[in-house]
Design a protein around this nucleic acid. Structure first.
Lengths: 151, 151
DNA sequence: CAATAACATGCAAGACCTCGAATTTTCCGA
DNA sequence: TCGGAAAATTCGAGGTCTTGCATGTTATTG
């Protein structure tokens, strides 16, 4: 083991993460795990722990809210996220080779990075056209009633 | 003008942004502008407006909090941010050419992206060594009493 | 198997960021 | 110079995410 204990919430969380694939919101995970079975804070903490172990990767919506994704047997990839509906898609991108090496040479340790692309997907553009006048519905962190319906 | 009005808060804000260089926190800007001269929310909204006009660029600390930076006569660049003290530095990196084009071809519009590097700077590593046992002090969004002392 | 140390969880509180509605300020033409 | 429309600002409230502390569980030692 990796210095972590096997607890009921943790088991349920892992099972859920395996079932879902692609980045999902914490709220979604919480619902899937079962609101009763554990507190939202526990999900946050467990995911943070899993992230340290590299079992899980974090990405972001345009508004800064997080999505998590299980990473076992999946190669490293990046996402484009729709600013409007939150849908995510893989992007053909890889970090240039020398960058992190140069930073290390400069004396930085514990390196990590965030690369995230944002845009408005085709479907949302069409919706925006048919509903002229309404601005594109970019959600915001201080807003939205809980769940951003992914997928 | 650019469809925007010249108001007292806006003037003070621009002056402050010119004085400061490099990414700074909103709290810092607010203090510099003068807590009395305008509300924190106004700073948020003005910076958002300035960002739309391209006068200002936004970057992020490891914990997700924002830093703003004036961009007049400055070329586009990216940052490495210390996870511990929040200090920022320029990084020798540019986004590969084809990426956004490919996304556009896929039907995405209103493209933007975030690229951010994180690490622990040399000074903070030494502090961590001299203070064994204490973990590296990565601040967090729900924490910190207002100001992360930049620079 | 019992006792203990270490880790995990839940709750409450706080930080950051955003929006909506009401008020104030700016800008324009007469 | 004055009056009114449009835009900015303020205030209050709500949403996401993180922490501290008290409590509950898990694993380990004797």
């Amino acid at each position: 083991m990796a210095g972590m204990r096997v607890t009921k919430p943790r088991i349920a969380l892992v099972e859920t993460l395996m079932k879902l694939d692609g980045p999902v919101s914490i709220e979604r995970i919480h619902q899937q795990v079962g609101i009763k079975s554990c507190d939202l804070v526990t999900i946050y903490r467990c995911l943070a722990a899993f992230e340290n172990l590299g079992l899980v990767r974090r990405s972001y919506l345009h508004n800064g809210t997080c999505l998590y994704e299980q990473t076992l047997g999946v190669d490293r990839h990046y996402h484009i996220v729709c600013k409007s509906c939150g849908k995510t898609d893989k992007v053909d991108y890889t970090l240039p080779d020398g960058v992190e090496q140069r930073l290390q040479d400069k004396g930085y340790s514990h390196l990590s990075h965030v690369v995230e692309f944002f845009g408005v997907c085709q479907e949302c553009q069409q919706v925006a056209i048919s509903a002229r006048g309404t601005s594109i519905g970019i959600p915001a962190r201080g807003t939205s009633v809980g769940i951003v319906t992914e997928a």
